[in-house]
Amino acid sequence: MSPRKWDKVATTVLYMISVFIIAVLAFLLLYILISGLPHVTWHFITGRSSSFAAGGGIGIQLFNSLYLLILSMLISIPLSLGAGIYLSEYAPKNWLTDLIRNMIEILSSLPSVVVGLFGFLVFSINMKLGFSILSGALALTVFNLPLLTRKVEDSLQAVHYTQREAGYALGLSRWETVIHVVVPSALPGILTGMILGAGRVFGEAAALIYTAGQSSPPLDFTNWNPTYIASPLNPLRSAETLAVHIWKINSEGIIPDASAVSAGASAILILFVLLFNFAARYFGNKLYRHLTGARERG
């Protein structure tokens, strides 16, 4: 074959590969939504799950997922901001800083199941938190911290050095300059990273199986006192999340309508992931335009 012909063939193959990948995503989304959405009723979203019989809902699991998400983000956002600021602004260029960066990279490359087991050992057993929301939130924090920190550091580094000099030259400390000048400028990137991180946390199951637990005790949605044992807000109760629920009913296969419930739950999960994804894009862009003043210029 002539080179020109080869070129044609190769281009065609590359087009086919790209179409294939788009088809895979389309198939995944359509399969989940088509098989799942018919099961999504108000009763399904808010109802209690069933252990043996068909017709259970996912209300508590959905609440647990959201509660865990909020709790773990409350811990990991300030921590990752602090760590990211330190690495970007204060860390001297030496072997110790390199070592710290390597440690964070290693943490981000650890399998989530290992993070879950560590959480089980340290939070659930050693710290006696048991299978609880708190253990789960801490495990999710460990799972999420390295990526968030990295994202914060990268976003801060993307802000031009002259912005910092402007602050220093006005007699401001580095800390003031970072908090009031650099962080606001880096906010679009940071926000995008945080929202995508939230999406990851929302769908995570392996880190939660042995930390937040695989059971959901009955909750009393009329009592919101966090110290009450059946309170939805009690951080020491065990809490099966949506993702863990999907895994559990599929691996144990006790309830007869496992595949219908999983499909419905997966659909909800996917809808949330899509929501997080679009939110990240939308708010990131909007904030960016707002900060750069592009809006005013039309």
Partner: peptide, 19 residues
């Protein structure tokens, strides 16, 4: 498309794998 594929939770992949 690629970003969305990264975002799909692994249990969903497992469920589709299973079914």
């Amino acid at each position: 498309v690629i970003e969305l594929l990264v975002g799909i939770p692994s249990v969903v992949y497992g469920f589709i794998g299973l079914s």
